[in-house]
Design a protein around this nucleic acid. Structure first.
Lengths: 197, 197
DNA sequence: CGACACATGTAACACGTTACATGATTTG
DNA sequence: CAAATCATGTAACGTGTTACATGTGTCG
């Protein structure tokens, strides 16, 4: 759905052709999510079929620009007006991987967590570096970057939390009065930890 | 990829047939991500074609169980050993929506943010409620739930942050000495805010 | 008996990626 | 001129969803 509505949103600025739309999308998201040009054309075809956009006559340079229709404008407004729901979100690969890791024989969960934390930490450092470098970049791209930073931080917090939970779960419950860690106590950022493990 | 490797992981516990695999997957993820039964069968067919699983003879009850192969075991181990990279992650619909909202004419960004915060806040409350209710549930499902909580919290922090950034950006830069908010100063949880807007 | 859960499958379609084909224009 | 960029498209395939078809077993 993202690409479909993204193209509509970009066309709301004014008519544009496929190649321009890809450039505009990648510029707005700072190349975080490269957009395949083939997909742009097939999506534009579907949008035209559904009458959300209309093709304008091919111009002198052989470009085929599209214009958003009134119907398209309504669909786009609906997209902006309706929040992203839980059901809209794709399955999260990392969450599934760890959830299955704890019940798959022969898997060293601590090791899986450690590798992932390394990768995510490197990612977070790269994002942080970019944030400094791109302080005056487009607003849209800065928002995307900050979103990536918040997500990466949350992921590291979850990994740290999960590591503790799993370590505790592997001990065969010493006695019924389990030590309960206060909720979100481990939400404190503690990134600068290298973990030689 | 998630489904393919999830089925391999579940088969690593022992042979199972399609219907069982779906039940096991949904039980491990606490129905967070329902798994279409049709997809289970088509994925099993592809896995069999690629020799990552092998079909066992149909039993008396008309069930067709599958067993993971050595090749399948290697692929699965590779999945667990390699971290989820930035490039593996799908485009994030909410991030894209807000990034495009700020440059699409006629869009009230503050309104979009406010609606999304409402939806995510309700989600977070539901997850928190579940966390209390399911304290003794399967470890895998508890991990999934906590992952959802960490993500929802991060999303709300990002929405709050973005709201502030956008509000500031809409002012036509009063004078060059811009007031710089300290990084992550707004990372403080402030969920219990109803915002009549 | 009728409804429901169990169980396997197929068809059609949307969305996404990779790769290929083709041609015009620009630039070193 | 050669290579890169601009520009449009198609084919094949993987992944995911919805809907349909079909049959067995169980339970009220």
């Amino acid at each position: 759905m993202s690409v479909k509505y993204s193209l509509l949103a970009l066309l709301e600025r004014g008519p544009a052709y496929g190649y321009q739309l890809r450039a505009a999308f990648e510029s707005a998201t700072g190349n975080t999510w490269p957009l395949n040009i083939g997909q742009v054309y097939t999506t534009l075809n579907r949008l035209e079929r559904d009458e959300l956009v209309e093709a304008l006559p091919e111009n002198d340079s052989g470009q085929r620009p599209y214009r958003i229709t009134e119907t398209g404008r309504r669909h786009l407004a609906g997209w902006f007006a309706s929040p992203v729901q839980a059901a809209d979100r794709p399955r999260d690969e990392l969450t599934i991987k760890l959830a299955l890791a704890v019940t798959t024989p022969g898997v060293d969960v601590a090791d899986v967590i450690q590798r992932q934390r390394g990768a995510t930490l490197r990612l977070l450092q790269e994002y942080t570096r970019l944030k400094v470098a791109e302080e005056n970049a487009e607003l849209a791209w800065r928002l995307v970057l900050e979103s990536m930073i918040f997500r990466a931080e949350a992921e590291i917090r979850w990994l740290d939390h999960t590591e503790a939970v799993v370590a505790r779960a592997e001990l065969p419950a010493p006695f019924p009065f389990a030590v309960e860690e206060p909720t979100s106590a481990d939400a404190t950022p503690e990134h600068n930890r290298t973990r030689t493990h």
